[in-house]
Every structure is written in structure tokens, then in C-alpha cells.
Simulated assay, not measured.
Amino acid sequence: MNSFDESMIVMNELFGKDYQFALATTINDMPSIRFVDAFFDKGSFYIVTYDNTQKVKEINTNKNVSLCNEMYNFSGIAKNIGHPLDKKNHEIRKKLVKVFEPWYFIHNDESDEKMCYIEIKMTHGFCYKDGIGYKMDFINKKAKKFSFECDIVFVK
């Protein structure tokens, strides 16, 4: 197994669930950051939101975004892929409803035409697990694997 394939297994283990990230967007060179719940699947992160939010407006202007939490960081291209009930979103909707089950229907109204999913196709990123770091190039499907120990103390 090559380093990129190994890094995808780690990505699925770490982020193939409800995971909170700081999402950074920009508009007119002004950065904007907010926390979002995200789910990783097949090289992309998915976010459930509404078309009239500031983050979606900023993504419509500049599709380059970043995600960060603890020492994990990723960059990618974001796109509004439409309403959850759109036929093309059937498979990802099943996964998102399951992953976000504790709150999905409490905080989201699928009868609202403004509800949407954001897909962030990863371009580059860094994650680590069990003393191994992975610097990933999602475009070329390559990863550099190296020893990594996080020496920052996170207080919760």
C-alpha cells in the first residue's frame, strides 16, 4: 500500500464521522472563519447548511477554502452541490443523515428550498495518527509520510 492510500485510511478513521472544523473563506481579500460540522468521504468534506448563509455567499465568490482543527489542516475547492433531496445527492444524503443523526433534523428543514450541501474537494492537507504525519496532495494522489508527535497541549 502506498502512502497516499494509507493516508486515505487514516482520513476515513479520523474524519469519516461528525467532526468540527474551523472553515475559512474569503471575500474581497477579507478572511472569515466559523466552526462547522463536517464529514469526510472519498476525498471530500461535506457540510450541511443553507444557501443564504454568509459562508455560502463567500464560497460563491471564491471557492478556495481551508479547514483546520487542532493540528489538522486542509485546503480545497468548495461547491454548493444543491438541495439534500436533489436526486444527485441521494447517496451522500444517506451518509450525512446517519453521521449527523443526533441533530440533522433538529437543525435542518429539508422542506426549505434554501437548504444545501457544500462539498469541499480536497487539494492539499495534513493529518496525523499514532506518531505518523501525512502531508497529502489530493490532486496528484501523493502523500509524504513521516514521524510526527504533536507537542502542543490542547486544553478542553
Rank of each mutant, 00 (worst) to 15 (best):
N2F: 01
S3D: 15
S3H: 05
D5P: 03
D5I: 01
E6Q: 13
E6I: 04
I9V: 13
V10R: 02
Y19I: 03
Q20T: 15
Q20G: 12
A22I: 10
T26E: 05
N28A: 05
M30T: 11
M30F: 08
P31N: 11
R34C: 11
R34E: 12
D37M: 04
A38P: 01
F40D: 02
D41K: 01
K42T: 02
S44A: 15
Y46G: 03
Y46L: 07
I47F: 06
T49L: 03
D51S: 06
Q54T: 14
Q54W: 09
K55H: 02
K57E: 13
E58D: 13
I59M: 07
N60F: 10
C68E: 09
N69L: 05
N73F: 14
N73P: 06
A78C: 00
N80P: 08
N80Y: 01
G82W: 02
P84S: 07
D86E: 14
N89Y: 11
N89H: 13
E91M: 10
R93E: 14
K98I: 05
K98D: 15
E101C: 04
P102T: 06
P102D: 02
H107Y: 14
H107K: 03
H107I: 13
S111I: 09
D112Q: 10
D112N: 15
E113C: 08
I118V: 08
H124I: 01
H124F: 10
G125P: 04
F126H: 06
F126G: 08
F126D: 11
F126P: 10
C127W: 05
Y128D: 00
Y134M: 03
Y134R: 02
M136Q: 02
M136Y: 00
F138L: 04
I139K: 15
K145V: 02
F146W: 11
F146Y: 15
F146G: 05
C150G: 08
V153T: 14
V153C: 07
F154Y: 15
